[in-house]
Design a protein around this nucleic acid. Structure first.
Lengths: 210, 210
DNA sequence: TCACTTTTTGAATGATGATTCATTTTTACC
DNA sequence: GGTAAAAATGAATCATCATTCAAAAAGTGA
């Protein structure tokens, strides 16, 4: 039947697209954007070089699509979680849990993400990189909102919410980075409590606080 | 006189080398390693392209020399500071102060540094990148030592010193990053107290601590 | 000013790799 | 099995640099 045939084509098209994205993820994670060649990706995906261009306009589009789709996914997860009515501390716990789990499942993606996040001049001609960057910033704003809530609840000290958000993101990045480069593998999630404890309670012994 | 002449040559050689390094710093900070061409750097330094090769063997050597010399400098500063006998908290204050001041003076360098720190597969054939990476790791170890001291003094909570060090580095990176990309410029040093306060005291309100 | 050395130069070389496109292979339908 | 459409291919194209090197310029001492 007509529609059935078209459906199958569509499914196949999407499946191939996925295969290419996932091959690209592997190679980009291993070598970085510039040293990765389109043939590298084609070889990994078991397609001819030319075929990639039937699915993506350019190397850059492939790269940014890859990152963008995953960022969308994690943002969606986090936003859904934040619909729950609960305390700021609980929210932070949940969000960190989600993130750590996500990173753990998508290790390769995270290598790409974390090195892309720290690039200043976008490798890209224009829009692709900009849009992605904005999504990353949006994430901080969501966190800052949670911090604001915590302060209003009287559970957090009355500090600048943006500063708190940056702090948390910084700590998380640092631990994820460490986890990524560590020789002996360990479950990232095992660091969750440590991160929370230090973020919430600080380094200093109680009686010493001024 | 003979030696006098040689001295002058030597001085001139070093001066030119500096000019090239500083031009490279500017261009690399603006465009990143791969998109920067040797002619870009030559143009900025007001030399011919070929001249660069009289001072550096390759683009990579130029790049890593640039980073390495600055990392050496800040490491030296920090190590000197740590010779002072004083409390862990004081040490951390001093070290952060030094760092913030240093970053503020070498903004461009820091763009390069922070994006290099987050690269996993080294752009470089071999040794240059590895050596640099080790120096970056060494820095964490120095910090961890200070944390250990703080715990022994009973001033810090008995957490894993490496975790504490990663936390502090993460927070600092996050604030420096924010400062680098911020639209309206502000003195980085103005964030010093905030960083210390959050790192030492945590986000949570006292009476809420469990 | 001249002969000689040192330094600088930027055009030429060679390699690499993104992208294209004429050709081949596969699929769909009879 | 034949043929027309769709998809896949990878060799050829074209541009972009890192690096080199023969020639030019600047410096040096007479």
């Amino acid at each position: 039947m007509e529609t059935e045939k078209i459906r199958r084509k569509e499914r196949e098209y999407l499946a191939h697209r996925e295969e290419i994205l996932s091959a690209a993820e592997k190679v980009f994670a291993a070598k970085g954007f510039f040293p990765t060649t389109m043939s590298d990706i084609a070889r990994e995906a078991e397609f001819g070089t030319g075929t990639l261009y039937k699915y993506f306009k350019s190397k850059e589009e492939l790269y940014f699509t890859l990152i963008d789709e995953k960022v969308e996914e994690i943002n969606r997860l986090v936003k859904t979680e934040l619909l729950q009515k609960t305390s700021a501390v609980e929210r932070i716990k949940k969000v960190l849990g989600l993130q750590f789990e996500f990173f753990e499942r998508k290790r390769d993606f995270f290598k790409i993400y974390i090195s892309e996040r720290n690039r200043f001049e976008w490798t890209v001609k224009d829009d692709l990189g900009k849009g992605l960057h904005e999504k990353m910033v949006a994430y901080i704003n969501i966190l800052a909102e949670v911090m604001r809530q915590g302060i209003k609840e009287g559970k957090f000290r009355p500090l600048n919410p943006m500063d708190l958000a940056h702090t948390l993101v910084g700590i998380v990045n640092s631990f994820v980075f460490e986890w990524l480069i560590s020789r002996e593998p360990y479950p990232l999630i095992s660091k969750l409590d440590t991160v929370l404890e230090i973020f919430l309670g600080g380094a200093q012994q109680m009686e010493r606080r001024k």
